[in-house]
Simulated scan of single mutants.
Amino acid sequence: MRIRTLAPFALALTIACGGAETEEAAMTEETTEAMDDAPAMSDAEAAMTEITDYYETHFNMGHGSMVGGRYSEDGLLWSASGAMVYGSEAVGAALQARIDAEASQLAIHPGETMGFGDQIVSRGHYVLTGTVDGAEVRNSGYYIAVAENVDGEWSLKGVVSNYDTPDQSMSAGQMMEMPEGMGGDLIQASGDYFATHYNMGHASMVANTFTENTVAMMPGERAREGRVAVEEGLQAMFDAGVTFSGISGWSAHELDEGHVVGIGTYGTEGPDGAAAGHFAGLYSRGEDGGLMLHWLLMGAHASGM
């Protein structure tokens, strides 16, 4: 009786296990196909992901010098406050001072990355938290980073950031002393056109110098995506009484035949008086060869800069 009972049970178990194996195999095959269909991470994205992970990890471990070591010897950190630091050692020292003063913790949220051979340009968002005099502080904003590959090693050539918090605006600070730049004339015509037509109230004309899928990261607000959103932001700023006293390209270089990256400063006049800030831009060439803004980041300098 037991044999007769076990035989059907064994048969049922075999069928059940076989069915489970078949179902599991089908699920595995579907998962594999889904993974195959998923877009592969590009070399540029992989390189920038490694840099970003390293930056965040070692910053949060209090290793300012190690983070600074990921900058090239002539690397630049232009912080949201407007402070500019050159060189890997100086960047490391500045970051260590920030960590020690505020017990800062950093969260980096990468956005889009574009590769240009031995150079990478990336944008994203960050959140920096810490403690000052027993009170919790929080800063957040956007960044544009440029990395370069030298002899197989990726290093940060420059990182420029701003604040997206409401207390930041286009009239938040003063002009700072600028060291000698290089190649700023490459983007100067773009800046002149921007300031001239913006000040004439031609928000639509300025917006037309941005690409259709542009991203504008202005101080004190969330990023604006698309040309229409950029035009709305420019018009609102103009209606609030803010005008540009000038936009100066400081340093820029070609990434390839169709793209340029550059940084510089700007000045404004508004209801609160004269002010200044910094900017970083990724430009693409239009059909006529002129530069169009694909990404724009603007930061307002803190008072006293």
Results as ranks from 00 to 15, higher is better:
residue 303 S to T: 11
residue 176 M to H: 11
residue 237 M to V: 12
residue 16 A to M: 14
residue 201 G to D: 02
residue 48 M to K: 07
residue 177 E to G: 03
residue 108 I to S: 07
residue 48 M to D: 12
residue 194 F to Y: 15
residue 159 V to M: 01
residue 230 V to F: 05
residue 140 S to W: 09
residue 126 Y to P: 00
residue 104 S to I: 10
residue 148 E to C: 09
residue 274 A to V: 09
residue 151 D to K: 13
residue 72 S to V: 08
residue 96 Q to W: 09
residue 219 P to F: 02
residue 82 G to F: 02
residue 72 S to L: 04
residue 241 G to Y: 09
residue 184 G to A: 02
residue 274 A to M: 04
residue 260 V to E: 11
residue 36 D to E: 14
residue 10 A to V: 15
residue 197 H to V: 00
residue 180 E to P: 00
residue 171 S to T: 15
residue 33 E to G: 02
residue 285 R to M: 08
residue 177 E to D: 14
residue 296 L to E: 11
residue 304 G to Y: 05
residue 155 S to C: 03
residue 199 N to T: 04
residue 227 R to W: 03
residue 24 E to R: 14
residue 154 W to S: 10
residue 156 L to Y: 01
residue 274 A to P: 02
residue 8 P to G: 03
residue 13 L to P: 06
residue 219 P to E: 01
residue 169 S to C: 04
residue 72 S to T: 09
residue 42 S to F: 06
residue 55 Y to I: 07
residue 32 T to E: 08
residue 155 S to A: 12
residue 240 A to F: 13
residue 161 S to P: 00
residue 124 G to P: 05
residue 36 D to V: 11
residue 122 S to P: 00
residue 273 G to Y: 05
residue 255 L to S: 10
residue 183 G to K: 03
residue 210 F to N: 03
residue 74 D to P: 00
residue 92 G to K: 05
residue 302 A to N: 05
residue 263 I to W: 11
residue 232 E to K: 14
residue 97 A to W: 03
residue 279 F to Y: 15
residue 134 G to P: 02
residue 106 L to N: 02
residue 44 A to N: 02
residue 286 G to D: 11
residue 293 L to S: 13
residue 277 G to I: 03
residue 24 E to C: 05
residue 71 Y to L: 04
residue 235 Q to T: 14
residue 222 R to Y: 09
residue 298 M to T: 14
residue 99 I to T: 08
residue 31 T to Y: 07
residue 283 Y to D: 06
residue 177 E to N: 04
residue 269 E to Y: 00
residue 112 E to L: 11
residue 235 Q to R: 15
residue 265 T to L: 07
residue 85 V to W: 06
residue 203 A to P: 01
residue 178 M to P: 01
residue 116 F to L: 10
residue 16 A to C: 12
residue 81 S to C: 00
residue 193 Y to I: 04
residue 197 H to P: 00
residue 200 M to R: 10
residue 100 D to S: 13
residue 121 V to E: 00
residue 214 T to M: 05
residue 168 Q to Y: 13
residue 83 A to Q: 12
residue 111 G to K: 07
residue 196 T to V: 04
residue 22 T to W: 14
residue 59 F to W: 12
residue 118 D to L: 11
residue 29 E to Q: 14
residue 60 N to K: 08
residue 17 C to L: 15
residue 192 D to R: 12
